[in-house]
Amino acid sequence: MEWPVFRQLRSRDSSGRGAAVTSKKTRETTPRTDAADTVVQSICPYCAVGCGQKIYAKDNRVIHIEGDPDSPISRGRLCPKGAASEQLVNSVGRQTKVLYRAPRARDWEALSLDRAIDMIADRLLEARKKHWEDTDQHGKPVRRTMGFASLGGATIDNEENYLIKKLFSAAGAVQIENQARI
């Protein structure tokens, strides 16, 4: 007896706005977070408010990101950017392969990751040597290179900024900057 009126009486849903009128499809619909095999606590990557996020993943793929209700900063809320951050991971516009543009070329070409890092290491050392300075114009020691520069750091991690500053300073580079300057 699946007549609505019977369902209404049986489930004590007297106003007919609850279980009595739930369709089979609705009953079988589950939150997509149920399918996750892992969930980790994270932080939103956009502005510096630092809202809490929960990242749901299945089979090593992010399937959902939502606000973390435990965060005393955000109490589970996310703004449009934070709420869209799943697309930072899975958007079709994301470029996940190394690309190389040769001098005077009109387009990109493919390059292996390993080869790209080798080429960058070679170029860095060459630029470092070519623009090396032992002393300034007054003969004071500077022990540095002016051959390469770096820009950016506010969107990556503290640990990553630390390694960049450490490595580049050891290489003698001083032209290291990030978004805090603008």
């Binding site: 956009y46 408010v49 506010a154 969107t155």
Partner: peptide
């Protein structure tokens, strides 16, 4: 100060700044 990037404070504390 309401800063604009997730760790713009961190990248000033542990600076990638000249």
């Amino acid at each position: 100060a309401l800063r604009g990037h997730a760790t713009i404070q961190g990248s000033t504390d542990i600076p990638t700044l000249f």
